[in-house]
Simulated scan of single mutants.
Amino acid sequence: MKLSFIGNQLGKLWDYLSNPELWLAILGGAVRILLIILIAWIVVRIVRKLVDRLFVQRQRGPIQIPKRRENTLKQLIKSVVGYVVYFMAIVMILEVFNFQIGPIIAGAGVAGLAIGFGAQNLVKDIITGFFIIFEDQFSVGDYVLAAGVEGTVEEIGLRTSKIVSWTGELNIVPNGNIDQVINYSSRNGLSVVDVNVPYESDVAEVERIINEVGETLPDKYEFILGVPEIIGVQNLDVSSFVVRVIAETQPELQWAGERNIRKEIQDKLYKSGIKIPAPRIVTYTEDQVDKLSEERQRQRG
């Protein structure tokens, strides 16, 4: 009895598998899936080429986009297009297998709502990423200080941003942690140099030498924009006075400007006989101390 039942079921299975219509349907479905994947890949490739060409043409038009902003927008558009096209391809592939897309999407919406309440940090990261990109807070290639990390922006995503420190470390920062940004690339920099000068030196002579050096710097260093300006005596220290010099530089190059300005001024001052001031210690003998004490007592009396 059992053997006849098993044989009957195997016969039905063989009839099902040997049916030409089944294999034609499987072949047709496989061809449709391959076509969907191929078309999706071609569409993504074409859109990416069009995006590159669009930004090239925009560079020649009346509306100019900064290079750093262009790189950010290009990467964002390409990523979004890829996500949308491949998502649509997955939906179409599911339809090939006769899945009901409506209930799946409705269920995904409910599940997404439930997950959203438990993933508030993720939602915060994505929303902050949108604001960073569309408000142009910073772009790829900018030198920034964000979330306590200082370096060059390598990539901006909807959830995280990648910042490379000047010493080479790659920092992956969640966008939700970026509550304040200092962008050193969006404006020209300002080099601030304090020059310590001995009290024996003449202030007017020191300023003349600094001005003489400053006039040569824009030709020697192209990132220094204009002749450095002397603000004046900034401070009076124990053994010297401080003369402050400022100079406008190209973005991100204010620190290089400070190093070179300091080097040129120090070299010229030294050659002019004005040396770097050294700390001073005044010593008194025992007799001198006694005399000072007697003098103070007489003054008080």
Rank of each mutant, 00 (worst) to 15 (best):
K124T: 14
V80N: 07
L145A: 08
A106Q: 10
E155G: 10
T160C: 10
V173Y: 01
I104P: 06
I133T: 10
I104Y: 03
F117R: 02
S165H: 04
L113A: 15
D142P: 04
K74I: 14
I172Q: 02
D142H: 06
I132L: 12
L94E: 02
T72F: 00
V149G: 00
S79Q: 09
V144G: 01
K78R: 03
V173G: 04
I93L: 06
Q137F: 13
R159Y: 11
I133R: 05
I182E: 04
G112C: 07
V164K: 14
I104Q: 02
E169C: 00
A89L: 09
D125Y: 05
I126Q: 06
M88S: 14
K124G: 15
V140M: 12
S161P: 07
K124E: 15
R159L: 15
I77F: 12
Q75I: 10
L113C: 11
M88D: 11
I182P: 02
T152Q: 12
E70L: 09
P174R: 05
N177I: 04
V110K: 08
T160I: 13
Q180T: 11
K162V: 14
S165L: 11
E135I: 14
I77R: 09
G102D: 11
G168V: 12
K124P: 09
A108W: 00
I105P: 03
I127M: 13
A111N: 09
D125P: 03
L158R: 00
S165T: 14
Q120A: 03
G112R: 10
Y86L: 12
G118Q: 03
V144N: 00
G82N: 05
G148N: 04
L158H: 01
G157I: 08
I178T: 04
F130Y: 03
N171A: 13
Y184E: 07
I182G: 02
A147H: 09
S161I: 01
S139K: 07
T128M: 10
